[in-house]
Design a protein around this nucleic acid. Structure first.
Lengths: 348, 348
DNA sequence: GTTAGCACTCTTGTCAGATGAGTGCTAAAG
DNA sequence: CTTTAGCACTCATCTGACAAGAGTGCTAAC
């Protein structure tokens, strides 16, 4: 598609997108010739603009307004015209400064990363820590709450902690629980939760034939503890910053946007999609297939440690977002977070 | 103050407040005589309304609009005129039905309670679980993440779980950690976290003289784990429902409201205040001393188990909220939650 | 191919006038 | 002395008209 446009059209499209990003208003032919130094008259620009509109890259809200880029126009801009500026050394250092998370637990780190993303970009920051299922089992502990209620705590290799209350059939005392947890810790060490589940399932089928009471109890407990899916965790920061932008100034759009942020479901789906890919991903407007997020773009990237992908983070803002600024921020942040997590893994 | 008004004035004030709650529009003298069966002409009603305005209970947005209740007017209505309807048996049963939380951990319960509150009231639901400091210590566990990084998990008597990553000076192996946790569990059992902190502080002062290495390690670890304040947790549900109401229809007010909800700080302060009191509390409008929550009211109540207050929950809505409906919901919900928590405590 | 010129379209803002809801006051009725 | 009908007055809201301004598309000239 990049080849369909000659140089002049590209220049003009770029100018329009940039001006629209800057001013959030339809941009007209005269405005462009003024602000950018083409040696062209407004009339010539108009001709090009008409072509671009025919190609579906621009549209005009009404006859006598300027043009605004369509979704396709933004897409083209991002794919072919956008030059992502690199972060200056100073900015990199500033970012690194904010990422001193040693001694914080996973949840708090993620919350904080979201806040930083939102603060830097002036849009909403998202961080997702995905389903526990994809993490590697490290340790399980039992805390006896009452005679048949147990608190199960399991820890992943990356330091993620999940806890859950389960009811037991038998009343197990602390000595027994300790034995069970020792047994399980030894038995399940190094497996992903998904693998753990499979293993448990397999063994459960043979359970009838088990004479070893310890093993039997252990099996039952761990099944109860790990059986159901734990939901993805999503941290959202700075949703209210979105409301500052003129495209969401109507009460109706505000409501929709806030609802979308509140339900979190849609955001999770989007981030989940980016999970599969490498590097920075950009979802524009209705790609999200969600009415409530119409007019929004998401810039996301995965973070991981040496053992593989852990989660995704990103920034969500109006389609008219300052991509050249936000993309490197998201990119570098994902790298930094990955590094932080790696460092922690290294220590073990 | 209740005595300052004669019966007629009270009736009229009540009618105005009710109509304003129902229609969210200034109510005029004619409208009142139509909707309510006083045997009075609009003119008479007008006289009374003028008096009520002089007393600061009503105000008019402009000369030719009807009157709306002031904050003071709402206050008077709630203090003296409001008749809280009781929940029907059916409603009680429905509520109880939704409160089957057995086997859920504290956090999830609270999240769910918030959702239910918001769903029933059609306003925003709040649940606060207060600082860990006020809870009773039950158990501490250590999980070794790497050679000098430990995950500390501590559990309160009510089943609250907190975890934290700490750096240790010495490299402790699992055997040592087990001894330490056994020691601490025995030593600190039954104390509130505040008491635990005091005790640790006292013992730390004598630390120099300690020859017992175990004790020394235990002290250091528990200090690192418990030293800093854990923040109150606040669960907010249905904030977007607030945006449906006409008083927040202007973009500006929406922004402010969402900001207030996002920061959570103000909400926490408000709920904290209600912590000290018994029964249902009502904060009206600018009582909250917060511009962003102008025009809002909070109805809150504490919940507790036999060992004392645990947290607070409530509903936040426009000042023009349907108090007679929401108050019993909040009240009964607090009772139900308390009962659920008691039941769990009973089992131990 | 480029551009100046011009007619045309459509939004925005303003202003006047009409409408209607609601008030406050006064004077008459109960 | 209380109540109420009547009336003048205020003020927000709606309407239509009109002007201004921004921007376009087309055409003809360069």
């Amino acid at each position: 598609m990049a080849d369909q446009l000659n140089e002049r059209s590209q220049h003009i499209l770029e100018a329009i997108v940039k001006d629209y990003i800057a001013f959030a208003e339809p941009v007209g032919s005269r405005a462009i010739t003024k602000r950018h130094q083409f040696n062209l008259s407004p009339a010539s620009v108009r001709n090009v603009m008409a072509d671009l509109e025919d190609m579906g890259l621009l549209c005009s809200p009404h006859t006598s307004a300027g043009r605004i880029p369509t979704e396709k126009g933004f897409q083209y801009y991002i794919d072919s015209l956008l030059q992502v500026r690199n972060l200056t050394e100073k900015e990199r250092r500033q970012l690194q400064e904010s990422y001193r998370f040693s001694g914080m637990k996973m949840e708090d780190i993620m919350q904080e990363v979201g806040r930083i993303l939102s603060g830097l970009s002036k849009y909403a920051g998202l961080v997702m820590v995905p389903k526990f299922a994809t993490t590697v089992f490290r340790q399980i502990e039992f805390v006896r709450l009452s005679h048949r209620r147990l608190l199960v705590i399991y820890v992943s290799e990356t330091g993620l902690v999940q806890n859950k209350i389960i009811q037991t059939e038998a009343d197990l005392d602390n000595r027994q629980l300790e034995k069970i947890s020792n047994f399980l810790n030894h038995e399940l060490n190094g497996l992903t939760i998904t693998q753990v589940r499979e293993k448990l399932k397999k063994e459960m089928q043979q359970e009838m034939s088990l004479y070893d009471q310890l093993r039997k109890n252990a099996l039952q407990l761990s099944c109860a503890a790990l059986q159901d899916e734990v939901e993805d965790q999503l941290f959202v920061s700075g949703a209210s910053l979105m409301l500052e932008h003129p495209e969401f100034s109507s009460p109706d759009q505000m409501r929709r946007l806030i609802q979308a942020f509140e339900s979190k479901k849609i955001l999770l789906e989007l981030l989940d999609r980016s999970q599969s890919a490498q590097g920075v991903q950009i979802f524009i407007g209705s790609e999200s297939e969600c009415v409530d997020l119409q007019g929004c773009s998401l810039i996301s990237a995965n973070f991981s440690n040496k053992k593989g992908a852990i989660g995704a983070l990103g920034v969500i803002g109006p389609m008219r977002m300052d991509y050249s600024q936000v993309i490197p921020i998201v990119d570098f942040t994902a790298q930094l977070v990955s590094r932080v997590l790696d460092d922690e893994a290294d220590q073990s």
